[in-house]
């Protein structure tokens, strides 16, 4: 299995541990990830607020980089990157006039948007391309006893017209993966909540409140850690957790792992190999207690 890999900006800095764990997991599963040469930021759901034509154009370029590689899919590990690339693709595939204009814009790059690659996320690819049975065979250390809270994040589900992998009102993909890995998924109110990351500057007070609730809810359900398929949700819930704590009298402590880190643990990697020590809220004690014995 080969994919064109679109890492996205956070994987180069704040979420480098997601790059490390994704590469480890892909290699162990025999998935080849070819990083796109010269990819740009997807716009992170901000650039369209200044210029939506530009937002579509830069992602047309990103997709065209993947088309040049002769693979059938571009893969990401970030919800927002996936949404931004898929939004551009949906617009370009539907609107011929827009596609002609965007291709005119790309002329200077020597590239063209053709529309012949799909954009997927690792979570989806594991289910629809790799297969859960095959993933199960690779599990070396079942995560028996580990209670995980699956926090989807908005942009892997919505809008359903653009994302549409599963029912956005009651998705099950994360639970399916957790089950294969041997972990127990807990039910919690904030499973489909918004992390607030995209407005953490202009709406800091409100977003910190969201962060606190998003940590307290899985805690009340007895979760050992929260799992997310998005590095932006991860950053909001982990790195901002000490700031969010200030608004709550109850202890909100909740370790937050990236999905590939959870998979990597079940594949037998150590927390250090998956760079779990990079998280602000230390996840290693709870992992040691439950799965690393």
């Amino acid at each position: 299995m080969r994919y064109a890999f679109f890492p996205g900006c956070t994987l180069e800095s704040a979420a480098e541990e997601l790059m490390i764990s994704t590469m480890k997991v892909a290699e162990a599963l025999g998935i080849e990830l070819i990083e796109l040469k010269g990819w740009t930021c997807c716009g992170a759901s901000h650039i369209q607020d200044i210029d939506d034509f530009l937002a579509t154009s830069i992602n047309a370029r990103n997709i065209a980089l993947g088309e040049k590689l002769g693979v059938s899919k571009i893969i990401t590990v970030c919800n927002t990157c996936t949404l931004m690339l898929r939004t551009a693709k949906a617009k370009l595939d539907k609107n011929k006039k827009l596609r002609t204009r965007v291709n005119e814009s790309l002329r200077s790059t020597g590239m063209q948007y053709k529309g012949n690659v799909e954009v997927t996320h690792l979570l989806w690819a594991l289910i629809e391309d790799y297969g859960l049975d095959r993933l199960k065979e690779k599990v070396k250390r079942p995560l028996t006893g580990l209670k995980v809270a699956n926090f989807y994040g908005c942009h892997i589900l919505m809008p359903p017209k653009i994302m549409g992998f599963e029912n956005h009102m009651n998705p099950q993909s994360m639970e399916m993966i957790a089950e294969v890995l041997g972990a127990e998924s807990v039910k919690f109110d904030q499973r489909l909540a918004c992390c607030g990351f995209h407005a953490v500057f202009p709406a800091e007070k409100e977003v910190m409140n969201l962060t606190g609730m998003n940590c307290l809810s899985p805690k009340a359900s007895g979760a050992d850690c929260l799992i997310t398929p998005c590095p932006l949700c991860q950053m909001q819930l982990d790195a901002y957790q000490p700031d969010a704590q200030k608004g709550f009298s109850k202890d909100i402590t909740m370790p937050v792992l990236h999905l590939p880190q959870l998979i990597g643990l079940a594949l037998g990697f150590s927390p250090q190999e998956l760079a779990i020590q990079r998280h602000v809220v230390d996840a290693i004690p709870v992992l040691t207690e439950n799965v690393l014995v």
């Binding site: 942009h155 995209h198 202009p202």
Partner: peptide, 12 residues
């Protein structure tokens, strides 16, 4: 206006 979080619930 800038407090919209881009969660996509309204459009969905």
């Amino acid at each position: 206006l800038w407090k919209c979080i881009h969660c996509m619930q309204c459009i969905s």
